[in-house]
Amino acid sequence: MGEMLSVKNINVFYGSIHAIRDVSFYVNEGEIVTLIGANGAGKTTTMHAISGLLKLERGEIDYCGHVISKMEAHKIIRLGLAQVPEGRRVFSGLTVQQNLQMGAYTRKDGKEAVQNDFDMVFDLLPRLKERRNQPAGTLSGGEQQMLAIGRALMCKPKMLLLDEPSMGLSPLLVKEIFKIIRDVNRNGVTVLLVEQNAKMALEIANRAYVLETGTIKMEGEATELANNIEVRKAYLGAQ
């Protein structure tokens, strides 16, 4: 269980705004690690920095022995690092099936292997199977989230970045999505989960980091943080 992803002192700017300051953390193979924090803490910025959609000002990101912080986004995914972006961002004009096929865009291991993963995704997310020929734009929010996860799984990732998968979903659906995340992890995919819903995130994670105004304020075992008085006050609604 070695270190799979390590983020080292990264700094990201939006123009003159210093969005991320010297953020460092790591994710071990097989873990679920969560990054919790309020709106505007820099969670999505951190995600975009890892997946290559944003460039770093300083610092370095290593993944499986590659320095990915200088790589283009479309090459990073070829290393098996997939992202489920905030707001799902499914291709609404394409069908569910075509969206999943897009997820397999980088695959070169033949139709049969891709078909196996279609079956795997439909097994994990049976609702998608029913709606496979429907345009993704007609799906409900929860189904779109499932599709976004399924689409990311189609590239056979070693590691999955999930950005606020619970956003805008009913409590019941949030539970379902988190169960799916746990299942995905049990199937051998390492997970980095960014969440505002700290309660749910800390329940399924091994370790957690608390991000506040662009810096890491706390870190530790998820159970430990869930019992931490400051975390309870700020993120879990304790009095």
Partner: peptide
């Protein structure tokens, strides 16, 4: 074709297409 689908994907959401590995 998968190239055609990549074009559709880029036209809908450039960022998301990049995350799929499409060279924009």
């Amino acid at each position: 074709t998968s190239t055609g689908h990549a074009m559709l994907a880029v036209s809908e959401d450039r960022g998301a297409a990049q995350l799929m590995g499409v060279n924009v």
